[in-house]
Write a protein that binds this DNA or RNA. Sequence first.
DNA 1: CATGAATGAGGGTTCATTCAT
DNA 2: AATGAATGAACCCTCATTCAT
Lengths: 197, 197, 197, 197
Amino acid sequence: MTDWSVKMKNKRKMILKVAERLISQKGYSKTTIEEITKKVGIGKGTFYLYFKDKNDLFFSIIKEEFENLMLKIKEEVEEIEDFFERLKKGIEIYLEYHEKNYNFFKILLQEKPFIKRKSFEKFWRDFFKKWGSFMKDGFEEQIKKNKIKKIDLEDIIYSLIGILHGNIHNWIINNRKYSLVEKKDVIFKIFTEGIRR
Amino acid sequence: MTDWSVKMKNKRKMILKVAERLISQKGYSKTTIEEITKKVGIGKGTFYLYFKDKNDLFFSIIKEEFENLMLKIKEEVEEIEDFFERLKKGIEIYLEYHEKNYNFFKILLQEKPFIKRKSFEKFWRDFFKKWGSFMKDGFEEQIKKNKIKKIDLEDIIYSLIGILHGNIHNWIINNRKYSLVEKKDVIFKIFTEGIRR
Amino acid sequence: MTDWSVKMKNKRKMILKVAERLISQKGYSKTTIEEITKKVGIGKGTFYLYFKDKNDLFFSIIKEEFENLMLKIKEEVEEIEDFFERLKKGIEIYLEYHEKNYNFFKILLQEKPFIKRKSFEKFWRDFFKKWGSFMKDGFEEQIKKNKIKKIDLEDIIYSLIGILHGNIHNWIINNRKYSLVEKKDVIFKIFTEGIRR
Amino acid sequence: MTDWSVKMKNKRKMILKVAERLISQKGYSKTTIEEITKKVGIGKGTFYLYFKDKNDLFFSIIKEEFENLMLKIKEEVEEIEDFFERLKKGIEIYLEYHEKNYNFFKILLQEKPFIKRKSFEKFWRDFFKKWGSFMKDGFEEQIKKNKIKKIDLEDIIYSLIGILHGNIHNWIINNRKYSLVEKKDVIFKIFTEGIRR
DNA sequence: CATGAATGAGGGTTCATTCAT
DNA sequence: AATGAATGAACCCTCATTCAT
């Protein structure tokens, strides 16, 4: 990788990092390009060398953070043989990730720039599809094996995500006073003992 | 009630209704007073007879919708004797309300106007406290009677709300193609059979 | 005078009084009809029964206050035989009036509503003309009698008014901490001993 | 000085110049940023690169004009030995300056933006203090030497400023038909022959 | 005569984006 | 590649004035 290319990557990453923090704190509309670039230490015009517009920045944050998360889950979870252990680990990673990157979750719940509403909704569908497909085979296998109740797969997945997000949300509005990861067992318990026969 | 008072109430309500729809569609920042008033059919200045400013409108929507919901739950749920039946009914009402007022849910997840962030977070805490206290006694009693596992009360409540919101969220991003209320049984099942011994 | 006519006069006077105070405190533009009428205790629309518009109010205040002042000077000063005594008394009355009605002076120096700029300047010309004609004969007589230096009459008059206003202005920006009237002697001294041979 | 810096200074100066004229003609409230920038030939937003807000513009005009005036008086007057000659020159410069910058005087008498009333009054106090201190030593010395009557210093200063402003005011409302500077002798005469023993 | 709800033109200010350097 | 001065559309909010009651 050339020196230039490295610098390029770094600058882009710095923008993303700073922007993520600011947007999570103040909201999309109240975060200005001016403030972002000033905090990064670059000129305002430079921003537009790395992003098409403000909207592009927003989706880039979400996209790249999401990919990070998915990658991490894949890496650490995939090889675990036992399904319920794999599920437990998945929950743990998910909570851990949000404990470290709680800005990301806040941004996910933000006002979305109007023009691109469609693409935002598309993003969410992708999100759930990936989660789904990631877990899908496992769930289906367990259903076949009669280890899990015969519940529609989608309902299972959205309930799981729901429990997770509900707990993350609560953790944030309580100012992150307790450890989020420590909730992994109780969440796992509520979720699995409900679906396990 | 006088004629004038009726008209007054109506106009205010119309603004709230229109604004709720627009904000849920386009987000708080992208929704303009101009557009709201034009859609209601009143002058721009008239808006400020009913609301102090744009921020006031935002919180009025949330506050009043929330009170409606709570009232409805209280009215229809309170008298049911059996706890699990009561819980079931509560889930049903909650889903039903959001099926009819799905804009409200979208707004709840919006970007909050920055200056009043504190009061927004206070709202969420109130929200959960009310839900909590509303269910609390019931849950505690059931725990004493050994009908429910000994799980921290807060964890139970946020998991329930989590499941509900996860399902509402999914329903919305799927363009509300199916009936939300019909999910009540599966949600109830996943949730209760997890916590019930 | 009929009862109605009395009420009419009173209401108009109350508006003038309240408006004078508010405008002198906050300036013309920042004083709203709403605030004036609320403080008077009448409806906003009622204002327009007594004044054509906001501009009319402004000039009415100045005009009527000015007429009061002129009347007072005439009444108390005219009969005094000796010219310098008359001048002295005139200065005293002028200071006394502004000490009691310092709002008036503040208003005189206010921003004038643009559209009527011409009429505002006309007012000032009238003001000086009246002062002038009021003193003119006396001054001219004294010049003839060689009691006063041969200085252009206008220069004399504007210098006198200048000294008076300079002192009033200073008194106001010093928050009226001392008695304005007490300056009458030193003003008279500086002015007369300059012009008297 | 760099090219950029020059342009910067110029643009700022142009805004000040145009604004001074407009405000003196129409008053502060009636003068809009839109009009100012259009007349200068720049975009509306550009204004805010040079001034924090409209209020800042107002005080900048006063402050900078005032400093110009004081500088000029200092430069041209300070070295004159004889007190009365120095006073005469001071009066001349003061009149000359206002003849050339008559807009400034008009602005000084404007409605002050409400919020900053305190700082406006502070400005006036500063103004008189500077004038005072500028002349003070001279006056005091003359009093000691018995060349001037024993009159309170403040009274002397405000009377002098009063005469000057009275004459400027009159000159303006007479549409500046005559030369203001030519009044210097008569003003000097009225003032000094009053205070000189 | 009296009212005050309703209006909408108009003003100050912000900020994403451009473009000459 | 990097910059930041310049722009102007867009937005929130105010308030003098009107008019139906």
